[in-house]
Simulated assay, not measured.
Amino acid sequence: MQEEDRLILESFKDELTYGRGLSPLTVKAYLTQMTDFAAAGGSFVKGFDISQMREYLMKRASTGMSPGSIARMVSCFHTFSRWLVETGRSEIDHSELLKAPRVPRRLPGFLGVSEVKSVLNAYDTSTTKGLRNRAVVELLYGAGLRAAEAASLLLKNTSIASGTVRVMGKGRRERIVPVPGGTVEYLGKWIQKRNEYISGDDPGTLFISVRGRKLDPRDIRRIVSAGVDGAARAAGATPHTFRHSFATHLLNGGADIRTVQELLGHAGIGTTQIYTHLTTEKLKGVYMKTHPRGKK
């Protein structure tokens, strides 16, 4: 990569990290693509135009890359090209005519209430590690947190007294989420045991490893995987599955979609509306089984 291109990419990284407050994983995804683009012969200074971008995307598509991955690449080019214009590095947004392939929107998977309970009961809470792990999954389901949000949640932002957590979400959007009594119970038990894992400086996060370090999203995924079995394993349950289950169960219970949007920390209602499809399918199933005109 040319030095001028490298400096531009460093500035773009700063914009994504500090200007837009994107998560480290999102920033890494943007930089990985743009670095790969440069390695394939692309330049951010000379000849950065739609023909270069299309050539790069066609090469990636020819390797069998999915439409979803190509669509994310197109989105990355849009963000980068607009940033070049905003910062005076380009007079034209060369990505303007670049179109992403249509990607079928898949409905998120979720677990039934009994399946969630089965996973929660899988952890041996007589041990400190088992207690921590159950508290993690309790929070994923009880508050609908993303894995990264649960990993970075600060101890000082966890209020057992009020039953709330203050969460820093995507785009550095902060929200306060109520936590149900059962979840509060396990959070409180974990906090009482938490100091057993502190061996040096306290990282300040609610959840820590046995060596006292901050957990990362991969640790959260491993914790979930350790408790998943039976139907939940067959459903491919992940940390996000519990977030989906949180939203779906709220809507099934009569919560309005705006409330669910706020609890999930979605910037727009459109992202939340996908969960209404899940509840609609459930209602349709009940109708077909019970209504005289629904029976064959």
Results as ranks from 00 to 15, higher is better:
243 R>V: 02
237 A>I: 04
78 H>V: 14
24 P>A: 01
97 L>I: 06
223 I>N: 09
201 D>F: 11
177 V>I: 14
45 V>S: 13
210 V>D: 15
260 V>C: 03
232 A>G: 12
228 V>I: 05
237 A>W: 08
204 G>I: 13
293 R>P: 15
14 D>G: 08
60 R>S: 10
258 R>K: 05
272 T>F: 13
286 V>R: 10
220 I>L: 13
244 H>E: 10
134 R>Q: 04
14 D>E: 13
72 R>N: 14
250 L>R: 10
84 L>E: 06
3 E>F: 00
88 G>R: 07
66 S>M: 14
29 A>W: 01
50 I>H: 13
195 N>L: 09
48 F>W: 02
271 T>Q: 07
158 T>M: 12
11 S>Q: 11
244 H>I: 07
150 A>Y: 12
203 P>K: 04
70 I>A: 02
91 E>G: 09
122 A>D: 00
119 V>Y: 02
31 L>A: 06
288 M>I: 03
5 D>C: 08
216 D>L: 11
279 T>Q: 01
213 R>A: 15
208 I>C: 11
283 L>E: 12
78 H>W: 05
249 H>K: 14
61 A>G: 13
143 A>G: 09
246 F>K: 03
265 G>K: 05
165 V>N: 07
93 D>M: 14
284 K>F: 13
220 I>R: 04
265 G>T: 03
38 A>W: 06
108 P>S: 12
60 R>V: 13
158 T>Y: 02
58 M>K: 12
261 Q>P: 03
197 Y>K: 00
183 T>G: 01
296 K>R: 11
197 Y>H: 00
14 D>T: 06
8 I>C: 08
169 G>K: 11
82 R>P: 02
272 T>D: 05
68 G>W: 04
277 H>W: 10
28 K>G: 08
139 L>I: 03
162 S>Y: 03
31 L>W: 07
71 A>L: 10
189 K>Y: 01
244 H>N: 08
98 L>S: 14
215 L>C: 03
183 T>V: 08
238 T>N: 07
22 L>S: 00
129 K>M: 12
225 S>G: 10
159 S>F: 07
156 K>P: 01
197 Y>M: 12
115 E>Q: 13
113 V>F: 08
73 M>S: 14
15 E>R: 06
256 D>Q: 14
271 T>P: 00
207 F>E: 15
224 V>F: 07
191 I>H: 02
135 A>Y: 01
214 K>N: 06
106 R>V: 13
222 R>H: 07
50 I>R: 10
202 D>I: 04
34 M>T: 14
266 H>E: 02
154 L>E: 13
5 D>P: 08
